[in-house]
């Protein structure tokens, strides 16, 4: 098995996706676009940040147990200021 096969289907954390699409990518400024103020990760319910997601369509089967959800919620309330 190639290293690529070994690594390329690794799950990614939702926080990495959000960090990338909310903070990175090309930002177009100017009159041509509808201007949207900066999106603050702090707005987001912290529970959703750490959940691991599988890429490409598999996320629909994703289920996070409510126990884990509560733990994460508690953890995040301590982190995000």
């Amino acid at each position: 098995m190639s290293y690529r096969e070994q690594y390329e289907n690794n799950d990614v954390a939702l926080i990495d996706i959000l960090d990338a699409v909310l903070e990175k990518g090309v930002v177009i400024c100017g009159d041509l676009v509808i201007s949207i103020a900066g999106i603050d990760l702090v707005y987001l319910d912290v529970r959703i940040l750490i959940s691991a997601v599988e890429t490409l369509m598999q996320h629909k089967q994703e289920a996070v147990s409510s126990d884990r959800m509560d733990q994460e919620k508690e953890a995040m309330s301590r982190v995000i200021r």
Partner: peptide
């Protein structure tokens, strides 16, 4: 691909 930031909207 050049990815755009989330919610890049044109009139």
């Amino acid at each position: 691909l050049i990815p755009m930031k989330f919610c890049t909207l044109f009139k």
